[in-house]
Nucleic acid binder design. Structure first.
Lengths: 80, 80
DNA sequence: TTGATTTGTAAGATAATCTAACATAGTAAT
DNA sequence: ATTACTATGTTAGATTATCTTACAAATCAA
């Protein structure tokens, strides 16, 4: 009945992503700084995340929880 | 591969809902005041919308564009 | 014309997010 | 053990987003 929102369309603000991923804002920004995620920005320079971004962050969170460091995660997520 | 977000979970901020529905903030707040939508609120009293909310607003927008007034829309959307 | 409906706009307050900087615990290397 | 690096926390100050309330204006109905 409805058109849903594609996985690559950025619609989620930081607050929601923090809840959904169980990551802190600091962590999310750091992972972006490390090139692990590249959330879009709105006109006011606020980050806006897609479902793809969120799933990627969940994956990162999982790997972090397994004790894998950023270098390892970079290697594992080098592709899509 | 991914768990998506259920239609009734509130994750969208005003800014995104305005874009997705082509409604103004004023309109959205007015429709809420008229009982046509009931978005959730976060801890800071900001509105947070679910996909169901957005689809309902799109329906309202469509009816408004057809020249139907609030009373008419209320009648038509009285049920779920 | 009068009154109600619907939306715009503005003001002032509060919340959310941003960047940059410094602090710190943990890990690895020397 | 000391040093250096990694990953995250915390704080500060600035900027953006959203909230409520009020008043204005346009539209529609009586």
């Amino acid at each position: 009945m409805n058109k849903d929102i594609p996985d690559d369309v950025a619609t989620f603000p930081m607050s929601v992503v923090k809840e959904l991923t169980q990551l802190t804002g600091r962590q999310i920004r750091y992972y972006e700084e490390q090139g692990l995620v590249k959330p879009a920005r709105n006109e006011g320079n606020r980050r806006v995340f897609s479902l793809n971004d969120i799933n990627r962050l969940k994956k990162i969170k999982s790997l972090i929880d397994q004790g894998i460091n950023i270098a390892g995660i970079k290697a594992m997520l080098k592709d899509k």
